[in-house]
Design a protein around this nucleic acid. Structure first.
Length: 297
DNA sequence: CTCCAGGGATCAG
DNA sequence: CTGATCCATGGA
């Protein structure tokens, strides 16, 4: 991968294992919009353009063949923030070699979403986002997060709003959160915001813990079970060996690895750990996209 | 109308 | 301990 800078843009060429649509649309993050291109232009037809909000900034990403542009940004900002956010320093071809070794299922899954990367997101935003995600669908999750950001987040560039701070959400009543259409999850969000704001839950300290301890700490919150905790561990804290197991992952794992039989989450975790080891999180993300993008399960 | 969504809390047995 | 039920909301 080669990164150069021109004007307010960072330009990525010689791209290895990175597709912006696959990375954003695979269910790990919720604050992105695919921008509509001018339908008539022949060149524009193959250009993919997204707008994301993260790290208190709006960023555009355009992708055309083997060239991606990120803007507005600077070399300093891109190096310090976005390079890490998009996980650009990691060698995904090596990861893919390992998880596909002697595994025809993973070979198909990786082939399906070969440009997927796991973002390194903010723990607070990820925690609240995945509390909201429970028993919910991605479209509605995105809408709820957009609503709380517009109402209670600080304005950033391009008329967007940052994800609300802990203090901003902790100030709200459960009723005000409920009015953002998050339903029964309002109490969970309120509880999490209070815990973090008061210091009962120290998100920075969680970042220094080993996986099992960090998971246990997060699960002390009401509304955070093993799946939500594992999403935070994987998508925000860099514990790439965890294997968040939702209904989709459960179905596709049962289908391919358990002869289609009903299986407990613990057994799925055990198989993933044995088969994919420290790369289970990546395998999970490939499988999630594969399960949702095909009609197999 | 019913069913389901990147689940988890609660309760019955 | 395991399994069933409920939870708000909105789209299919």
């Amino acid at each position: 991968m080669i990164i150069t800078y021109s004007g307010d843009r960072a330009i990525l060429t010689d791209i290895n294992s990175f597709d912006i649509a696959e990375t954003l649309e695979c269910g790990q993050c919720f604050r992105f919009v695919r921008m509509e291109e001018g339908a008539s232009s022949a060149e524009a037809g193959d250009t993919v353009k997204y707008r994301i909000v993260a790290h208190n900034r709006t960023l555009f990403i355009s992708e055309y063949e083997d060239r991606m542009e990120f803007y507005p940004t600077t070399e300093r900002e891109f190096t310090q923030i976005w390079q890490g956010y998009f996980d650009l320093d990691r060698d995904y071809s090596q990861i893919k070699d390992i998880v596909t070794a002697n595994d025809f299922v993973m070979r198909d899954a990786v082939n399906f979403g070969t440009g997927t990367r796991i973002l390194n997101q903010d723990p607070w935003e990820t925690l609240i986002s995945f509390i909201i995600s429970q028993n919910n669908n991605i479209g509605r999750i995105k809408r709820i997060i957009q609503t709380i950001s517009e109402r209670y987040g600080e304005p950033v560039n391009d008329d967007q709003f940052a994800f609300p701070t802990t203090e901003a959400l902790a100030r709200l009543s459960e009723a005000e959160l409920f009015e953002c259409k998050m339903g029964f999850r309002a109490g969970y969000v309120k509880g999490a915001a209070d815990a973090v704001a008061s210091g009962v839950l120290d998100l920075q300290a969680v970042g220094r813990m080993e996986t099992a301890d960090a998971r246990r700490e997060l699960m002390k919150l009401k509304g955070v079970g093993i799946k939500v905790a594992d999403c935070v561990l994987l998508f925000a804290y860099g514990h790439k060996e965890v294997f968040p197991t939702d209904v989709w992952i459960k179905r596709i794992m049962e289908h391919f690895y358990f002869s289609g039989q009903e299986t407990h989450i613990k057994d799925i975790h055990a198989l993933a750990a044995k088969r994919f080891g420290e790369y289970a999180g990546f395998a999970q993300q490939y499988l999630f996209a594969y399960a949702r993008g095909t009609k197999i399960v």
